[in-house]
């Protein structure tokens, strides 16, 4: 006897590939990282702050009627913040608002330039050492090891004593020691990636040096490099302020957050808080913004966190 027809127990009609279909769209590495970064409010606040400070450093000196080196010794000394002088004036009657943004220009310029130069030297040096390997790597890294033993800021100070203070010499001094980190990082990444199966697979499939470098090694080493870059920027900004504070940085009348803080040390006793407060605030805020953004970027780019 035939059983009653029940559609539920008829073979299901389905396409042959239904079970091979990928259920979720694959999120690309960078898209995925951006999605995670966007959710991290601390990092996004950092990014917004960086953009704001950069914007103000560009237009700040331009929207103010004063010049950063313009002195007013007779009537304009140590004025409190007011509608006229938004951040007050210093002991030479110079407008603190303009000077803060002039300082911002210097800090950001140094931070970005130092990071970029570190990147170039580090990627080339570390890339060659890691890619060639063997004897080349041995010699190149021995040299790095010797320089590595030198205390960073002490070396920079000595270099500045030799070369004399100034914006250019600071950048040179910072990068002379700064590229070591990047070179080590890139070399480590390249060495590690070179041994990975997917690179071996690419070699087996006949990929040339160029393809290996640009399709496999560099994109995969990009995450750590970018993280290192964002952490180099606040380090360089700090170093510049530190050196300027010690009198080894940019020279008067050019304003730098470091020199402004140094000049304002006496206000601890005399009470013109604005002279210390504003450069201190924006130096700290800039460092904070870069650190928060760098942290968020690290979390976003770390593939181990990928879920």
């Amino acid at each position: 006897m035939e059983p009653a027809f029940n559609p539920r127990f008829q073979p299901a009609v389905r396409s042959r590939n239904a079970s091979e279909k990928i259920k979720r769209p694959p999120a690309g590495y960078w898209k995925d990282a951006w999605r995670r970064l966007r959710k991290n409010w601390l990092a996004m606040t950092g990014l917004v702050l960086i953009l704001l400070i950069a914007l103000m450093s560009v237009i700040g000196p331009w929207i103010s009627p004063y010049d950063y080196s313009e002195q007013n010794l007779r009537t304009g000394k140590n004025l409190e913040p007011s509608a006229e002088h938004w951040f007050g004036t210093d002991d030479l009657g110079r407008d603190v608002f303009v000077r803060v943004w002039e300082g911002g220009r210097i800090s950001l310029t140094i931070g970005l330039l130092a990071a970029l130069i570190d990147l170039c030297i580090g990627v080339i040096y570390g890339g060659i050492a890691g890619y060639r390997g063997g004897r080349t790597d041995e010699i190149m890294m021995r040299m790095v090891d010797v320089l590595w033993g030198l205390p960073y800021l002490l070396t920079v100070i000595l270099l500045l004593v030799v070369m004399g203070p100034g914006l250019g010499t600071i950048i040179v001094a910072l990068t002379v020691t700064g590229w070591l980190h990047m070179a080590r990082l890139v070399r480590g990444q390249v060495l590690q990636l070179k041994e990975q199966e997917f690179v071996l697979a690419a070699v087996t499939l006949g990929a040339g040096t160029k393809r290996l470098l640009f399709k496999h090694l560099i994109p995969n080493a990009m995450g750590p490099i970018i993280i290192m870059l964002t952490l180099t920027v606040p380090q360089a900004i700090f170093a510049e302020a530190f050196l300027s504070f010690l009198g080894l940085g940019v020279q008067a009348p050019v304003a730098s957050w470091g020199t402004m803080i140094n000049d304002a040390l006496i206000t601890v006793l005399s009470g013109e808080w604005w002279r210390l407060f504003f450069p201190a605030l924006f130096l700290s805020l800039t460092m904070l913004a870069f650190n928060a953004f760098g942290d968020g970027l690290r979390d976003a780019l770390d593939p181990k966190m990928r879920k």
Binding site: P234, A241, I261, L265, L276, A280, S284, N291
Partner: peptide, 22 residues
Amino acid sequence: AVLGISVPSFVLAPLMQKYLAV
């Protein structure tokens, strides 16, 4: 911790002097 990393010691020190000491 982020604050401690971001605020340089030569900013923190005068601020502490001003408030905690003076």
